[in-house]
């Protein structure tokens, strides 16, 4: 879940200390978001580099940024979208769900098999979502963000953000009922 840094937490700190705090707070979430959206690891690292550098050079006064978390995610998201305009083929969505399959007891082998199939299908369905649906579902479920914040990051209205999440979940729901039939068989 993404953490929130308030301006009050940065008061009284030097520019370097503030930057260090912001960097340490958000680096993991930004990296996970970038990679989970399908950008390659090297590109995400370069993009995060540029996002923080731009914040340092252009926004020396952090109070100019109303919501730092939205600002960082939105900057990274814009860079990822820009990169796909020039290199549309480089999309490799990272698995949303991982599974541990080592059986602890003999009767749990079935469970491990079902869990593996569920993870595989969930990841496939996530890949089939549109970019906006995937990022909205990710920010809502993984980062527990409010719709207003998701709207700010995806540069859309709050209504549109709700629609992206509900359509994404509808797709997941549809798949899940199919998986239910498969398990019965």
């Amino acid at each position: 879940m993404a953490k929130k840094i308030l301006h009050s937490q940065l008061e009284g700190k030097s520019a370097n200390e503030s930057f260090g705090l912001l960097y340490n707070t958000y680096i993991d979430d930004l990296y996970a978001f970038g990679v989970s959206m399908g950008a390659n690891h090297t590109f995400v690292k370069d993009a995060i580099h540029d996002v923080f550098l731009a914040m340092l050079t252009k926004k020396r006064d952090l109070s100019q940024i109303r919501d730092i978390e939205s600002y960082l995610f939105r900057s990274l998201n814009n860079r990822i979208i820009d990169s796909w305009r020039t290199q549309p083929n480089e999309v490799n969505v990272e698995a949303l769900v991982t599974v541990s399959v080592e059986p602890t007891q003999a009767e749990h082998i079935d469970e491990a098999y079902i869990a593996t199939q569920m993870a595989s299908h969930l990841n496939q369905v996530m890949q089939k979502l549109t970019y906006n649906q995937r990022s909205a579902v990710y920010l809502r479920i993984m980062c527990d963000m409010k719709y207003s914040k998701i709207a700010a990051i995806l540069n859309c209205t709050e209504h549109a953000a709700r629609k992206f999440v509900s359509k994404g979940l509808a797709n997941l729901r549809k798949y899940q009922s199919e998986l239910g039939k498969w398990i019965k068989n």
């Binding site: 989970s36 541990s100 469970e111 869990a115 569920m118 993870a119």
Partner: peptide
């Protein structure tokens, strides 16, 4: 019990 085997993937540097 099945779900306890699944977790969200969080790629990390």
């Amino acid at each position: 019990s099945v779900m306890s085997r699944l977790s969200f993937n969080k790629p990390e540097m």
